[in-house]
């Protein structure tokens, strides 16, 4: 109780301070993923560039666990003075709340800006009897329950992305959840699971060397780096698009002047040559959606995934 009162007092004090000089002290960015992962690496790269843009130092705080919900929940207690930000990917906000009770919803934050996006991909071994996305889905449909696919974790965005496609085609496969794309890749390369399901960048070198045949990406359009993979539009499943995307959010009640300052800084940083070059290396593209439009995007994705989770029996 005492801490609550102190917190409330601090809150009042914090908001009365003038925002004109923002930022005048270091900013802390919570990353709800372990150090070294995709979200962490892109947040750190972003932070180094933002430091120059905002003229202050930025510390990254990794708070991993619970598919990202641990870090986001922790961030709910952050002060809305503009010095605490959240750099997350979409899953903890739009997917995890479908499966677990969370202390937050997509509208619990002030949307600042999305930064980049990429698709998930499904890949098979070279000997797999399919050469195109269409043949791949036909093979899966013809053999219900025969193939195993590795994914990033049960009820994760990656699994939902795949299940949306499978459901649309009445396909039955066995989902084997792993700790992350790296672990999935290891088990795929070792032949322990038939299908790799995960983000593009870890599997990219194997697709290029021919050790993996990537046949589907979960974006509507095809991805240039994976020429053999069909986009969902080409398969007539354009409305089943599920992306992996990253964003920066601020605590509810953050001053609009600060948010605007951050939006401007993020727009410059994300579109800078250094950042786009970095993104290209990890198979992502810059994508800046800001303010209320970002809020709508979050809510829209949340509602679409709620439908899939419901039909999979995963919803809480």
């Amino acid at each position: 109780m005492k801490t609550l009162m102190l917190g409330a007092a601090a809150l009042v004090l914090g908001t009365t301070v003038a925002q004109a000089d923002y930022p005048e002290r270091p900013i802390e960015i919570t990353v709800p993923a372990p150090a070294g992962g995709g979200t962490d690496t892109s947040a750190r790269m972003l932070a180094t560039l933002l430091e120059g843009e905002l003229g202050t130092s930025i510390a990254i705080l990794n708070a991993a666990g619970g598919g990202g919900s641990v870090g986001v929940t922790q961030f709910m207690q952050a002060r809305n003075d503009g010095y605490s930000l959240l750099a997350t990917w979409n899953s903890p906000i739009t997917t995890v709340p479908q499966m677990q009770p969370t202390a937050y919803a997509p509208d619990s934050f002030v949307p600042v800006a999305s930064t980049s996006q990429t698709a998930y991909t499904l890949c098979v071994a070279p000997a797999f009897p399919a050469e195109t996305g269409e043949e791949f889905l036909a093979e899966l449909a013809a053999n219900p329950g025969r193939y195993t696919y590795g994914n990033d974790g049960i009820g994760g965005t990656m699994q939902l992305a795949a299940e949306r496609i499978f459901q649309a085609r009445g396909i039955e496969t066995i989902a084997v959840p792993f700790g992350g794309a790296g672990e999935t890749l290891q088990n795929f390369l070792g032949g322990h699971v038939d299908i790799y399901g995960g983000s593009i960048s870890p599997v990219l070198p194997y697709a290029q060397s021919g050790e993996a045949k990537c046949l589907i990406v979960t974006s509507a359009a095809a991805v240039p780096a994976l020429p053999q993979a069909s986009g969902l539009e080409a398969l007539g499943l354009g409305d089943k698009e599920t992306l992996l995307w990253r964003m920066v959010l601020a605590p509810a009640g953050t001053d609009q002047a600060i948010v605007d300052r951050l939006i401007a800084a993020l727009e410059t940083t994300v579109n800078s040559p250094q950042y786009t070059e970095f993104l290209a290396g990890v198979g992502e593209v810059p994508n800046v959606v800001t303010g209320p439009a970002l809020g709508e995007r979050l809510q829209g994705e949340f509602d679409a995934l709620a439908e899939v989770a419901q039909s999979l029996g995963l919803a809480q």
């Binding site: 690496t41 750190r44 790269m45 960048s201 990219l204 070198p205 194997y206 060397s209 050790e211 070059e277 970095f278 290396g281 990890v282």
Partner: peptide, 10 residues
């Protein structure tokens, strides 16, 4: 990755 090197077998 940040230094522009692609990890992988190559």
């Amino acid at each position: 990755l940040i230094h522009g090197l692609q990890p992988g077998p190559q």
